[in-house]
Nucleic acid binder design. Structure first.
Length: 446
RNA sequence: GGAGGGGUGGCAGAGCGGCCGAAUGCGCCAGUCUUGAAAACUGGAGACCUCGCAAGGGGUCCGCGAGUUCAAAUCUCGCCCCCUCCGCCA
């Protein structure tokens, strides 16, 4: 038997990774099912209930026997020390040992499917999240700025970029395939300028510590943040080793503190990270096939926070604001949308999407997604905090984790090309980026 | 990739079949002393599962897993990670 979640502190009964705490699950199964609503429809609730009960009964049997075995073995030790015959006691304990082994095998057979099911239950939406099963029930929270006043019909970013000689999709598909892009010249530099602008702002103005993490991670990390076990088909995986390409920096950065106990005084902990992100985009055939909107590889600057539970919803507002600051600095019109329960990701308790205005599409498109995961990832990953050591009231509790794009870099470049396009096809560079572009103010055909 | 060494509590580090959830030191918390602090002294403190309204009981955890044994931190096997040397390499 192989443990499907190797270093995800699993198995050995009591060491169960507590995605949902089993006692909580047992006591609240019906309530949880009701509150999850459409999010919980593919959870087999009845088998779950059965497995929990079986586990409970088997665990208690094992513990009783183990207690007996312990006492018996001490008795054997005592007899031997006193040079008395111990054969009978040893034989009795051998039988107890065999019974334990048998029940443990049975227990393993229960725990494996139980853990797997448990890891597939999505997070509970926060009370402030609107009901609804798809994007049509999302609620606009606010808008900032206005669409640009273009004097000519808006061109798409791919037309602009190809005409300017800064985006090359044909060669990208030759060297890699569909859903890849090559950026050259001022395009490549603009992408780099955006990354630096975002990182500089978050580190110097917003109090985040910069992290440059691995782009390949193990199965345990993907399980803690919630990509696994349910969404393996969305990930790129290496053929020869059990590594996955990260779909977002959220994964390595949140896992920085997996299986750790953070000092309460160190909280909140805030990180920002630039990484390429890799996604299979399985099931998105035919959507956004042109341009930079939906690629297998794209750049993103991510914001991640670890906070005390009572501060997480305040932190979500704050973190979302940090992402908005980037768009405001770039002068790009956007709106913020509160996702309804059915449109949120698996791990999120509450999510705001920031959507930037794209003139050529005449609509808002997601450029950032900011979520509070509450204790969901912390429980899966064993990320806890504790007050000063030795203090009487110091309890160890799960932190709350949050993250948000700050921002998706490629989509930001799209927004700049489209919103700052000139009638002749050139593109003005927003003032805040010019220092990062060697003073360049306008991108013209090279 | 090859050879060797190692993974023990917040850190360092002992233990190498039963009396070990684990010495000792540092760090931490509280108290005594002090105007206050330091020092000294005294005391305290791991993480988790399970049963219970509670008081409390039982159990697990010495990298992870499997095994040997009446009994495993200690013995065997597999895996992971770290260190040193060699090889390869940005």
């Amino acid at each position: 038997m192989t443990n499907p979640y190797p270093d995800v502190r699993f198995h050995r009964f009591q060491e169960q990774i507590t995605m949902y705490d089993l006692r909580y699950l047992r006591d609240n199964l019906d309530a949880l099912r009701d509150q999850l609503g459409p999010r919980g429809t593919d959870v087999p609730w009845d088998s779950l209930r059965g497995l929990i009960e079986q586990r409970r009964s088997l665990t208690s049997q094992v513990e009783q026997l183990r207690s007996e075995l312990k006492k018996g073995s001490d008795e054997v030790a005592r007899l031997k020390r006193e040079k008395q015959p111990a054969d009978a006691a040893m034989a009795a304990m051998k039988a107890v040992g065999e019974r334990i082994k048998a029940i443990e095998d049975e227990l393993r057979g229960v725990e494996e499917p139980l853990t797997d099911l448990n890891l597939r239950i999505p997070n509970l939406p926060h009370a402030s999240v609107p009901d609804g099963k798809d994007a049509s029930s999302n609620v606009e929270a606010r808008r900032w700025g206005t669409p640009p006043a273009l004097t000519a019909p808006a061109k798409s970013h791919w037309d602009l970029g190809e005409a300017l000689g800064i985006l090359d999709f044909d060669r990208a598909s030759k060297i890699a395939g569909a859903r890849f892009a090559v950026m050259t010249g001022a395009g490549a530099r603009l992408e780099r300028a955006l990354i630096n602008y975002m990182l500089d702002l978050h580190t110097t103005q917003h109090g985040y510590r910069e992290v440059l993490p691995p782009l390949l991670v193990n199965r345990a990390s993907m399980t803690a943040t919630g990509q696994l076990p349910k969404f393996e088909e969305d990930l790129f995986r290496l053929r020869d080793e059990d590594y996955f390409l990260i779909p977002t920096a959220e994964v390595p950065v949140t896992n920085l503190h997996r299986d750790e106990i953070i000092a309460e005084t160190a909280l909140p902990v805030r990180y920002t990270a630039y990484t390429p992100c890799f996604r299979r985009e399985a099931g998105s055939y035919g959507k956004d096939t042109r341009g930079l909107i939906r690629l297998h590889q794209f750049n993103k600057v991510e914001l991640v926070a670890f906070v005390k539970p009572e501060q997480s919803h305040e932190e979500l507002e704050r973190l979302t604001g940090h992402a908005e600051t980037i768009l405001q600095g770039l002068g790009l019109h956007y709106r913020v949308v509160t996702l309804c329960a059915g449109d949120m990701g698996f791990s999120a308790a509450k999510t705001y999407d920031i959507e930037v205005w794209l003139p050529s599409q005449n609509q808002y498109r997601e450029i950032s997604s900011c979520s509070n995961f509450e204790g969901f990832q912390a429980r899966r990953g064993g990320i806890r905090y504790k007050g000063a050591a030795g203090k009487k009231d110091a309890k160890t509790e799960f932190v709350h984790t949050l993250n948000g794009s700050g921002l998706a870099v490629g989509r930001t470049l799209v927004a700049i090309l489209e919103n700052y396009q000139q009638p002749d096809g050139s593109v003005t560079i927003p003032a805040v980026l010019r220092p990062y572009m060697g003073g360049l103010e306008l991108i013209r055909k090279e």
